[in-house]
């Protein structure tokens, strides 16, 4: 026959063993950094932060390509990231050494790249400079096969055009006199 005391001892033992199993289970199964910041694996925060950079910034380009960046700062393209048109910097530089040439778009590819932003499209803000390719070429009386860079410097699209305008104005004022 069980005495009432034996019953309580058994009940307490079962209770303690459940607590023990939970503590042991948590110790074995939860990762080390669990609960470092909250109810999650704290080490992942730094793991996420440690992912390698693929893109740099324009500051990354300036040390070698100062002249291009200066030209780009001339006018409307100054806000553009170099890597928007040329591919990301990790394809070009590794550990401070050049590993491959950057992607430079020529010919039809280049026209498509320019038109990605400057094609007349429904939904674009009206004050944004937009053209229809062939309409633009017709209006300026040049061949349909012209690419953008035959008139515009791609890094500062209005630089040489402003220059020509200034020269024209100068010429006109001289003619008037």
């Amino acid at each position: 026959m069980d005495s009432p005391n034996q019953f309580w001892i058994r009940a307490i033992l079962v209770f303690l063993s459940i607590i023990g199993i939970v503590i042991l289970g948590r110790y074995l199964m939860l990762p080390d950094s669990w609960g470092q910041y909250g109810y999650y694996r704290g080490a992942y925060v730094d793991q996420e932060a440690n992912k390698p950079l693929i893109h740099g910034t324009n500051q990354s380009c300036i040390s070698c390509h100062n002249e291009v960046v200066e030209l780009q700062n001339y006018h409307s393209h100054k806000n553009l990231s170099c890597e928007t048109c040329h591919s990301s910097i990790n394809t070009h530089i590794e550990n401070g050494k050049k590993i491959a040439d950057m992607d430079i778009k020529q010919g039809e590819n280049q026209v498509n790249l320019c038109l990605k932003c400057h094609q007349k499209t429904v939904g674009r803000p009206e004050n944004f400079p937009m053209i229809d390719r062939f309409e633009h070429l017709d209006k300026l009386k040049v061949k349909n096969t012209h690419t953008c860079d035959q008139c515009h410097t791609v890094h500062a699209p209005l630089e040489n055009i402003d220059h020509v305008k200034k020269l024209r104005m100068l010429k006109e004022t001289i003619n008037e006199k």
Partner: peptide
């Protein structure tokens, strides 16, 4: 050739991979 200059890179052109504290 621009590759001549590419060898001499300043610190900025390296992709910095150290992380700042939160």
């Amino acid at each position: 050739k621009s590759s001549l200059f590419a060898e001499v890179l300043s610190e900025d052109s390296n992709i910095k991979n150290y992380i700042n504290p939160m």
